[in-house]
Amino acid sequence: MTDLVLARPFSPLQPRSRSLAWQAAAVLVGTLLLALSSQIKVPMVPVPMTMQTFAVTLIGALYGWRLGAVTVIAWLLEGAAGLPVFAGATGGLRYIVGPTGGYLMAFPFAAALTGFLAERGWNGRRVGLATLSMLLGNGLCLVLGTAWLATFIGVEKAIALGAMPFILGAILKSALAAATLKAFAPRG
């Protein structure tokens, strides 16, 4: 089992071997991808379903845990500063401390988790493990986000409105992210 999980790890973009300028550019590209994915949404109450977790988990898997988390934190800082990078082209601290704050603050941890697992072989070479990695990242966002949302609307309502409606989307986005990651996997 250890060989299956840890064999032949790769980081398709090899960020650790790149210059600081390349890494800074990667962060910029990642924050743009996140900002764009935030605008693809299905309106739901109290939290819209977006393609953010698709981008978060994919960035983690492509960039690795360190640069992936840094990229998502940079995006959060952009949003906190008021740039319109969150869902609905919004920004500001109120989104981070409001009902959606738990989901947003979970994103760097999800990127780090998927990046950590990808660096250990849960990557595009093994689509099943990559999908599981993406599911774990999405699940972490749902758990942390729902826990934060519960402080606003109560546990039962938070689970009913902030977790359950998003499970199918999390599964689909995880499969799509893993398939996208496979496109970056070296052949052979």
Rank of each mutant, 00 (worst) to 15 (best):
A147H: 04
A158H: 06
P15G: 02
A21K: 10
G137L: 07
G68M: 04
A118T: 03
I59E: 06
L113T: 10
P43L: 05
A25M: 15
F86K: 04
G68T: 02
L34C: 10
G30P: 11
Y103W: 13
W65E: 13
P165D: 02
G68K: 08
I96E: 06
I40P: 10
R16L: 15
G79N: 09
F184C: 14
L168P: 03
S11I: 15
F54T: 11
A35D: 04
V143S: 02
L172K: 11
A61L: 06
G30D: 06
G137Q: 12
A7G: 08
V42S: 13
A81C: 11
R94W: 15
L140A: 00
E156Y: 01
P43N: 11
K182P: 15
W122T: 08
M1S: 13
F152C: 12
A80R: 08
T31H: 10
L33N: 06
S38V: 05
T90K: 14
P9D: 09
P48Y: 02
Y63L: 14
A80I: 10
Y95N: 14
F184Q: 09
I171S: 05
L83W: 01
A118N: 00
L117G: 10
L113G: 07
A175I: 15
W22M: 00
G98W: 03
D3Y: 13
G91V: 03
L144V: 12
G101T: 01
L140G: 00
E156S: 03
L62C: 05
A35Q: 07
L168G: 09
N138W: 03
I59W: 05
F54H: 11
L4Y: 15
S19M: 02
T180E: 10
L20Y: 11
Q52W: 06
L129I: 03
P99M: 14
N138R: 07
A55C: 06
K157H: 00
Q23W: 00
W75P: 07
L76V: 08
A130H: 14
G145S: 04
L62G: 01
G128W: 09
N138V: 01
G64N: 12
A160D: 00
A69M: 12
A177T: 12
T2C: 13
V27A: 01
G88Q: 05
R18F: 05
L77Y: 09
L117Q: 09
V70H: 10
L113S: 06
S19V: 01
A35M: 04
V143D: 02
A69K: 09
V47F: 00
L135V: 04
L83C: 05
G60F: 06
F107D: 07
P84S: 09
L34E: 04
A24N: 08
R18M: 07
F86V: 13
G169P: 09
A25K: 11
M105N: 13
Q23H: 00
A21L: 12
L34V: 09
L136H: 14
Q23Y: 00
V56F: 08
G88M: 10
I40Q: 12
T53E: 06
V56G: 09
A81G: 12
A183S: 13
S11V: 12
P46V: 06
P43G: 01
E119M: 14
V47N: 01
P108M: 03
F184A: 08
N123Y: 04
V47G: 01
F86T: 11
V27T: 06
R125C: 06
F152A: 15
A7C: 15
R125F: 05
